[in-house]
Structures are given as structure tokens and as C-alpha cells.
Write a protein that binds this DNA or RNA. Structure first.
Lengths: 180, 180
DNA sequence: TGTGATTCGTTGTTTATTCAACATTTTATT
DNA sequence: AATAAAATGTTGAATAAACAACGAATCACA
């Protein structure tokens, strides 16, 4: 079933408003009033869709994780390098969101959520029954590689993407290849 | 009385949509369907506010004429040069609208409307009872100067504003000074 | 500590927008 | 010229959003 156009527009405006505000001030100083003002929406409309600003932030994060997941799965038939390039391009095209969410100290929520997602993803790829990780601990390898990956992405975004997506993908890809 | 937020948002989206579409194709090939799609608004909403696309275009034009008028009157206490600079800056900041409306062959409406407005404005300044235009025909002087002014503005916008507002204002101002 | 201001979360009512449907008209294609 | 496809202009019912109002909670600061 498709959502009403009004619902979609209101929610888009509200989500965009929060992201924007988070680039300007700390999350806990942001009020619902601020958000509805910026979104050009009645204050009650925010409560119509979200419990509070934390719920709103949660929904935004989940949606981005979900989109990112789909986007990267759509690259499943590609080889490893191409799929990494694909993901970096996703980060690039959603730069405002990711840089805000990773940079903002007020939102360690997202970094954790993002890390958890990547842990699950890498877990699918790690094989400790054979190959270079035979005999290793799955948890250790997975934590190791996920933290490394997230850290680099974080650095890349915080520093204004000093390399183009393909270049960073190649560098990261080469390192990931040594682990998983 | 202030307008409902929904009304304002819908109308803004619809007006923006038409301007955008006019940069892409001729006015008469644009349908109400196109406009509502681009504005992300139900087709019925367009009819709720406007009779048809001509009425919509009329309202857009009138609104811009009105805004421009206010903006330039707000410069009434300035000297001649400064007020001309002010007007050029208005054109610059509404470049999308004016260049579209003046460039688009499908909209000779606006050029005429714009010209008429300027004729009325210059008529206030022309004095045939004394000074350099003593004995002249008011209609002739007014038509002369308004057409000249509109022509230059049109040229300036169509050619991507090759001079900054102040520079073009100085050049035009010097010429206007010789007439009125 | 107290007091005024702001935000909160909720409510009831009003209103604008959506959506689907329809017959009609215009436009495009064969 | 005939036919299909798309746009028109209009309905009625459903619904999301706006708005104003409220007491309660929180914040600012004297």
C-alpha cells in the first residue's frame, strides 16, 4: 500500500529539518519547535508521526541503514571492488546525512548502529573453517574488520572525502582483502 | 489574515514547478499534469487555486511585478544610481524567473506586462513642462525610455549577466540620465 | 528558592489536500 | 478519417494537516 502524498512530504520535511539542524547545533539543544519551524510544518504534525525527537532520529537512522543495505545488496553480482565503489558512492551522495551523523558528537547512536550493521554484513563473508582465517575466532575477525571499515569511512567523510569514491574503494578494498 | 500553511506550500510548489518546466520546454506544451507531477501535488489541487495554466502564469507574473515594485519603491529615498543598483540586484536574485520569462518565446506575455509596468513607472519621472524634455511628447519619451530600459535588462539577463549589478546599473543609469 | 518563559504532549475542530472516478475534450498515430 | 491515448475539468468521500487551546513539565535566571 502506498502512503498518502501528504504523509510522505511532511515526513521528508521533518527528517530533512532535523539533519539540517544537527549540522548547526547539538542534538540535545534541538527542540520539537525548532524542527517543526524548520520543516515548515505544524508542531502537532511531528507528534503525529513520531513520539519525540529520539524516535525521529531512530527512524531516520533505520531508514538510512535500510537504504544503504538495499543499495549495497543490489551490487551483489558485482565483484568485490565494484561493490565497494558502489557503497562509497552511496556515502558520497548522502554526504550531508553521514557526515552529520558521524561527525556530530551528540549522535554516537548512529556510529554504533552503523557499526552493528557492518558487523552483521561482514559476518556473512568471514569463513573460519578454511582459508586465511582457518582457526581464527569469528567474533574477533568480524569486530576487527568492521571497526576498521567504519573507521575509515568515518575518517573519509569527516575530512571532506579527500579521495574520489573509486580511489578510496580501491585502497580500502586492498586492505579488506587481506583480512576477509 | 494569514494564509494557511498548506495553501502557501502548495502554491509555492506549483509556481516553482511551472517556472522550472518553462526552462525545459515551451509553455504551450506544458500540461496541468506536468505541473502537478513536478510540484508533487494532486492534479485537483492545481484547479483548487488556479483556473488553468494561463491563470497560473498570470498570477505568477503579477506577483513578481508586485514584489519588484515594492522592492524598488523601498529604494525611493536612495539616489538614482543606488535605486537602479537595487533593481538590478533584484533581477539577479530572481534570475531563474526573469531569464525564463524573458527568454522563453512562449511567454511574450511577461515582456509586455513588464514593459507596461515600467512605462507607468517612468511616466512618474518624466516632466515635459520644464528641463530637458520641455515641449516633448510625454508618451514618446516614456515609451522611448521604457523600451530602452527593458531591452537592456532583457539583454543582460539573456546573456548571463555579463556585468555585475552595480556595473550594469552605472552604464544604464548614465544613459537614462540623458533622457529623463 | 522562586518566578516567568518556554517547551511539551495532547485535545477538538476546521480546513486543505488527496484520491478515485467520471464524461468530455484534445492530441497523437495509423 | 478513424481510433487510441492523454489531458481536461469536475465531482464526493476520506483523511492528513493546520490551528488554537490547554495544563503540566522544564528551563532560565534573578
Amino acid at each position: 500500500m502506498k502512503v498518502d502524498r501528504r504523509v510522505a512530504k511532511s515526513q521528508e520535511a521533518i527528517k530533512k529539518a532535523l539533519i539540517e539542524l544537527m549540522t548547526e547545533k547539538s542534538f540535545d539543544t534541538i527542540t520539537i519547535q525548532d524542527i517543526s519551524d524548520r520543516a515548515n510544518v505544524n508542531r502537532g504534525t511531528v507528534y503525529l508521526h513520531y513520539l519525540d525527537k529520539f524516535d525521529l532520529l531512530d527512524k531516520i537512522m533505520e531508514e538510512h541503514i535500510y537504504n544503504m543495505s538495499n543499495f549495497c545488496e543490489s551490487a551483489a553480482e558485482m565483484n568485490f571492488l565494484e561493490s565497494t565503489v558502489h557503497c562509497m558512492e552511496y556515502f558520497e551522495s548522502n554526504y550531508l546525512f553521514f557526515s552529520t551523523m558521524l561527525a556530530s558528537e551528540g549522535a554516537p547512536y548512529f556510529r554504533n548502529r552503523f557499526l552493528q550493521f557492518n558487523i552483521e554484513e561482514f559476518r556473512k563473508d568471514v569463513d573460519i573453517t578454511q582459508g586465511k582465517n582457518a582457526g581464527q575466532s569469528e567474533d574477533v575477525v568480524v569486530e576487527f574488520v568492521a571497526n576498521a571499515y567504519v573507521g575509515v569511512v568515518e575518517w573519509w567523510l569527516k575530512n571532506g572525502m579527500p579521495y574520489p569514491p573509486r580511489a578510496i574503494a580501491e585502497k580500502v578494498g586492498e586492505l579488506l582483502d587481506r583480512i576477509v
